Computed example of a mutant assay.
Amino acid sequence: MKPQALLIINFAFVSQQRYFIELAYNGTSYHGWQIQQNAVSVQELLNKALSTILRQPIETTGCGRTDTGVHAKEFFAHFDAQFAEGETNALESTPFRGRGGLNALLPYDIAIKNVIPVHADAHARFDATARSYQYHIHFNKDAFLHGFSWQLRDEPNLELMNQAAVMMMEYIDFSCFSKSNTQVKTNNCKITRAEWVKTEQGIVFHITADRFLRNMVRAIVGTLMMVGRGEMPPEGIREIIESKNRSNAGTSVPACGLYLTEVKYPYQLTPRPLTP
C-alpha cells in the first residue's frame, strides 16, 4: 500500500487595517449619503470605488447621514481592508496614489481629501464628539449661488433670530425638530453653538452639537425664520421645544443651503507618511 500523499496548503498571512476616509461632496445629484434601494447615494459610489481600487468588497460606515440635496464640506467614513503578506497596499504604497486613484473613479462632485489609517476600534459615527452645520441664505439673484444657497426676497430680523437661537441652547430634547418615524433611542442633543452671521452674500446660520436628528437643522432654520419674519416672538421657541411636537415647529427649509462643515473626534486624524 502506497503511503498517503500529504496535502500541503500554504496560508498567506492576512492583516486587516481600518481606515478613515475624509471627503467632500456636492449633494445636488444624490439622495443623501446613505445607500438607497432605488436612488443614487454618495455611499454607494464610494463603496464601489473603494472595492475597485482594493479589489475586495468594501463597505463604509459614515459619520452620519445627510439628506437628499445636502452638501458636505467635511465628511468622514471608516472601512476595513484586508491585505496579504507582501501585497502592495494600493492606498499607501505610492504618494497620493490612494487619493488620486479614488478621485479618478468618482464623479466630479465627490472629492477624496485623505485616507487615514486608524486603530481597529475607531468608529466614524460613534466616536464623533461634535458636528457643525451651516445654512446659507442670499437675497439677490446670483447664478453662482443657485443650488448652493436659499434665495429669499426679504431679509429677516437677524437680532430676533439670534435671541431665539440662544434660548435653544438651554434645552436638550429636540423632538419638535425631528423627522417622524426615525429609529433613534433618544431625541436629546447638546447644542453648543447656534448663531446667525451676516455675510457679503446674505446670512449664514452656524450650529454645532454633539449629534443631530434627521431634518433637525432645516426644521430649526424654518422655525427661526418665523421669528425673523415677525410671525412669533423669540420666546415662542420655548413653547415649540417644550411641546415636543414637530407640527408646532416651522417648515423645513430647502436642502440646497445646508452644509455639513466639520466633524470632531477625541483623537487626532493624521495621515501617516506614504512610502515611495
Rank of each mutant, 00 (worst) to 15 (best):
M1G: 14
K264E: 13
L158D: 01
E195A: 01
V253F: 06
Y19N: 06
N114E: 14
Y108G: 00
V227Y: 12
L224K: 08
N188E: 15
K244D: 04
H206K: 09
V115A: 06
I116P: 01
Y259Q: 01
E195K: 14
A90M: 15
F212M: 09
Q82V: 00
S178D: 06
T88R: 13
Y25M: 03
T199H: 12
L50C: 09
H146L: 13
K264S: 14
K48C: 08
F83T: 05
P273R: 08
Q268Y: 06
E87T: 06
F11V: 09
I237K: 06
V263M: 10
Y259E: 01
G64Q: 02
E239K: 13
N157F: 08
D127R: 02
F174E: 06
Q37S: 13
R229G: 05
F126Y: 15
Q4K: 15
A120M: 09
W150K: 03
L274E: 15
Y259K: 03
Q56V: 00
F144W: 14
D121N: 11
L224Q: 05
N89Q: 15
T88H: 07
R211G: 03
L274R: 13
H138E: 02
A5H: 02
Q34C: 07
A5W: 00
V14P: 00
D173L: 08
G32Q: 04
I207E: 10
V227F: 11
Y19I: 00
P273G: 00
A165V: 05
G228C: 08
M216W: 04
R238I: 11
G222N: 04
T261A: 02
Y108P: 08
L152F: 14
T129G: 01
P234A: 08
Q4I: 14
A39K: 15
Y30I: 03
L54Q: 04
R229D: 13
N140K: 11
L213Y: 11
N245D: 15
N89C: 12
D210K: 00
P95I: 01
L274Y: 02
K48H: 12
Y19S: 06
F75D: 01
A128V: 00
T66K: 07
F174W: 11
A165R: 12
T261M: 10
A165L: 11
I237G: 02
V221T: 00
A165E: 10
R211P: 04
I240D: 10
N248Y: 11
